[in-house]
Amino acid sequence: HMTFVALYDYVASGETDLSFKKGERLQIVNNTEGDWALAHSLTTGRTGYIPSNYVAPSD
């Protein structure tokens, strides 16, 4: 899985969403939902949907 870094803070709007903080590292599990991606946080160990425009690929 590619690793991504959060560009902004995001507060989950539902139970299936994943909250994260700017700078948090995430792995995209499934990116077939258009503007949303299923992601796993390497920081918190949690998995949920995130807005895909809130993250960018990290080196």
Rank of each mutant, 00 (worst) to 15 (best):
T43Y: 06
H1R: 11
R46D: 05
A12F: 03
Y8F: 12
I28C: 06
T43P: 02
G14A: 12
P51W: 04
T32V: 14
W36Q: 04
P57Y: 12
L26W: 02
Q27N: 07
W36L: 06
M2R: 13
Y54C: 09
Y54D: 01
F4H: 07
T3Q: 09
S58R: 07
Y54L: 12
M2V: 11
A6G: 04
P57C: 11
N31M: 14
D9T: 07
T3R: 06
T44N: 04
S52A: 12
R25Y: 14
D35W: 09
S13E: 11
T32H: 11
A6N: 01
G23Y: 05
G14T: 11
V55W: 07
A39S: 01
N30W: 14
L38M: 09
V55D: 03
V5Q: 04
L7K: 06
E15P: 14
W36S: 03
T44F: 02
Y54Q: 05
T3L: 12
V29H: 15
L18P: 06
V5L: 08
A37E: 04
H40R: 14
A56C: 12
D59E: 12
N31W: 15
Y8C: 13
S19F: 05
S52E: 04
Y49N: 05
N53V: 09
G34Y: 06
A39D: 00
G48D: 01
A12G: 12
R46T: 04
E24D: 11
W36E: 02
S52L: 15
G34F: 06
V55H: 04
E15I: 10
R46G: 06
F4G: 03
N31A: 12
L26S: 00
G14D: 08
T32Q: 10
S19E: 05
Y49A: 03
T43W: 07
W36M: 08
D17L: 11
D59L: 13
T43C: 13
I50R: 00
R25C: 14
D59F: 13
G48V: 02
S58W: 15
M2E: 09
T32I: 14
G23V: 01
S13C: 14
I50T: 00
A39F: 05
G23N: 05
K21F: 09
I50K: 00
I28G: 01
T16E: 11
P57G: 08
D35P: 14
R25H: 11
E33M: 13
V55G: 05
R46M: 10
A39C: 03
E33A: 12
P57M: 11
T16H: 15
I28L: 11
K22C: 07
R46Q: 09
Y54K: 05
I28F: 08
D35Q: 12
E24G: 02
Y8I: 06
A37V: 15
Y8W: 12
S52P: 09
L42S: 04
E24V: 01
I50A: 02
K22F: 05
L38H: 04
G14W: 07
T16K: 13
Y8P: 00
L26K: 00
A39V: 13
T32A: 12
G34W: 06
Y49Q: 05
H40A: 07
K21D: 05
S58M: 15
S52R: 15
A12H: 04
F4E: 00
W36Y: 08
G34V: 06
S41L: 02
Q27F: 13
V5N: 03
T44S: 09
Y10A: 01
W36P: 02
A39P: 00
S58F: 15
G45V: 01
D35T: 11
V55R: 04
S13K: 13
N30S: 14
N53P: 06
I28E: 00
